[in-house]
């Protein structure tokens, strides 16, 4: 496991949330490995993956945390919202109930994260056209009412998956470039500062702000 400096200019942490079974893990593997696994396993706790994309000639690295959807795991997964620059809230367009949970997920994210987090609403499984229970305009309406970005994807046929991640990363990039990062002394990051930005891990992030008295 040699330390490889895989050359990137910016590093952003993103979380995937949404009800159990909406396809978070497959959306992630479609994006990071271009794979879709029919025999995928339940995510327990959190899973991690990274990918690098180009935005305006800059290499942006995404550290993505895929979280378990079940209520009881909230204690573990919540810690990962903190310090995340962006979040994708997923629902399954063929299951109304997963769309109805979106509001709860949004509330949860807002309560546990920095305010300027970029949030995108993602209607997944758009390939299941015959079983659709949530219309595209319903998703759109919810997103615009809450100031979220919106997209419909299919991890199965790969449609819009890269677009979804590219869009959110671009938006984060634009937002972060417009103002100083993380509220600390750091200005807009460059390659040198990537090391600092890496400390978007909830633990360090927090300890830096609070300066613990131990």
């Amino acid at each position: 496991m040699a330390r490889i400096d895989d050359g990137y200019d910016y590093l952003y942490k993103i979380v995937l949330v949404g009800d159990s079974g909406v396809g978070k893990s497959n959306l992630l593997t479609r994006f990071t490995k271009n794979e879709f696994n029919y025999d995928s396993r339940t995510t327990i706790g959190v899973e991690f993956a990274t990918s690098i994309i180009k935005v305006e000639e800059k290499a942006i690295k995404a550290q993505i945390w895929d979280t378990a959807g079940q209520e009881r795991y909230r204690a573990i997964t919540k810690a990962y919202y903190r310090g995340a620059f962006g979040a994708l809230i997923l629902y399954d367009i063929s299951k109304k109930a997963t769309f109805e949970s979106v509001e709860r997920w949004l509330k949860e994210l807002k309560e546990n994260s920095d305010n300027d987090m970029v949030i995108m609403l993602v209607g997944n499984k758009s390939d299941l056209t015959n079983q659709r229970q949530v219309r595209t305009d319903e998703g759109k309406a919810f997103a615009s009412a809450h100031g979220l970005n919106f997209i419909e994807t299919s991890a199965l046929d790969a449609s819009n998956v890269n677009e979804a991640f590219t869009e959110i990363l671009t938006e984060i990039y634009n937002q972060k470039r417009a103002k100083p990062v993380v509220g600390d002394k750091e200005q807009a990051p460059d390659v040198e500062k990537v090391q600092n930005i890496r400390i978007t891990d909830p633990a360090k992030e927090h300890s830096k702000k609070k300066s613990c008295s131990c």
């Binding site: 706790g45 959190v46 890496r198």
Partner: peptide, 8 residues
């Protein structure tokens, strides 16, 4: 390295 223990 800041690896969260609860990630595994």
């Amino acid at each position: 390295e800041g690896v969260p223990l609860d990630s595994f």
